[in-house]
Nucleic acid binder design. Structure first.
Lengths: 114, 114
DNA sequence: TATATAGTTGCGATATTGCGCAACTATACT
DNA sequence: AGTATAGTTGCGCAATATCGCAACTATATA
């Protein structure tokens, strides 16, 4: 018998997904695919304010998806679980397949829908 | 040059993740892993009202993750992209690894945190 | 037509999220 | 100490999500 109930696992799983349910956080994860980066690096590449990037980073970090390394003035962030990129890529792959197969369905992913 | 901008892809990707960012919807997906099921089946297994299950199903269906098949009184639902289970399993695997390695971090996934 | 069963939808209260803005802390350098 | 650069945090408002409840639609069967 499991120490943790299934319901709790679903809850944790959902929380990980909710961290991933924001386009800016996904872009950050994608930008951290290779090297570690600073808030400033990310802010520039994403064309966002540092405050906003820092807020998103804080969420990723507090939820344990990102790790930090300080070096002087700079704080370099990197992915805590690079394996997560596999899930990221898989989902994106499904997305692209779907877009190419069923163009009409793309409508469903615009801002709103009937 | 891509027809769709990167930002749009991140946006769509985030929307898929936001569909997955609810424990009840994750449980539904997991229960649909094998056979197709009716709202009633799911409601019973999950110990929820049919109305609530139906609402979650509606979200999954409208976002294109579920497909329906009517048979008399019953509507059977099944996964539109079984491949999505790979992403589901991968994420869950990461979750379980993390729980076993760093028990303390589990705290971060409880309801609230400092 | 009437009744039962299966499922859906709208409403409303409550909770959560996103994000700009301004103020704040931390490190480095002169 | 003073200044610059890097990053963080709190606040407030608008937008969105959750979910119970009740009313609704759809199919089947007597």
């Amino acid at each position: 018998m499991p120490r943790r109930s299934e319901k709790q696992i679903y809850e944790m799983h959902a929380q990980v997904c909710s961290v991933l349910s924001n386009p800016k956080r996904l872009e950050i994860i994608n930008l951290l695919r290779g090297d570690e980066q600073t808030v400033g690096d990310l802010a520039e590449k994403m064309d966002l304010t540092k405050a906003n990037v820092s807020q998103q980073i804080a969420i990723l970090r507090h939820k344990g998806l990102l790790l930090a390394r300080r070096e002087g003035q700079h704080i370099y962030y990197h992915l805590a679980f690079p394996k997560m990129l596999k899930a990221y890529d898989l989902l994106r792959e499904i997305l692209m397949e779907r877009l190419s197969k069923q163009g009409a369905m793309a409508q469903r992913f615009r801002k709103e829908q009937p």
